[in-house]
Amino acid sequence: MSFFSNLQLYYVRKVKESLHNPGFLFMAVGTPLMYLLLFAPMLQHFTGMPGFTSGSVLNVFLPGVVVVIAVYGGLYVGFGLVDEIRQGIIERFRVTPTSRLALLLGSVLRDVSGVLVQTLLITLMAIPFGLKVYWGGFIIVMILLAIISALFAAFSYALALRLKSEDAIAPIIQGISLPIMLLAGFLLPMEMAPHWLQVAAHFNPVYYAVEASRALIGGQVNTPVVFQAFAVLLPVMALVFWWAIRSYKTAVA
């Protein structure tokens, strides 16, 4: 059986799992809506401040929010895997003649799909509120978000396989998610930050994604921030996947 038919089976299994979960559907639509209705209105007064100089405040705010959705859409998936390990499902799959990479990627692609659907929804919902979308740039934003959510999902799954306990992975995930979010300038642009914070942000891969997304949605495709984002994120993703695949091959699930 080919790798792609393995991948398809594992992917469809996870997609069905999501669609059967009413909580997931609610969160998929509810989260973006809450950001738009409960937070975006506060930003109206920022018009003209550092980082908010051009166009609608939503053009600064929305690219940040979709990156957050991508990070969280990946980072927390390990909890589900711990449960599958406990039920013996992963062990059962590991004694079938299917590819371990397909098992990992089937789940990761489901997580990426969820993030992309959410991104599309929130973007369409934001247009009536004043968002100006340059669709050519938006497609590249989607590629960046796919990379980010895949990276964090693979990291989360590998962590779950190695530690096999919600209690062990929760502090690690929470411990890294907060600095990553704060140092990415996703709610307020880093231009407003003091110099030392701006320097610190440059060590955060997610920061580059936020900067690139803002440029891309506004129509600036051929700019250094976009190239920087890919130059930083692709190697990080390769590293994380290498580690995750190793975990799937060796971990005693």
């Binding site: 039920q87 013996g88 062990e91 059962r92």
Partner: peptide, 29 residues
Amino acid sequence: RERIGYVSQAGGSDRGMSAWENLVLQGRL
């Protein structure tokens, strides 16, 4: 792996799926 079957202590059936879905997916794998 094609010639042996294994039922772990934990069981291995997916509780979110029916017996039918579990079995058919296993065969397809």
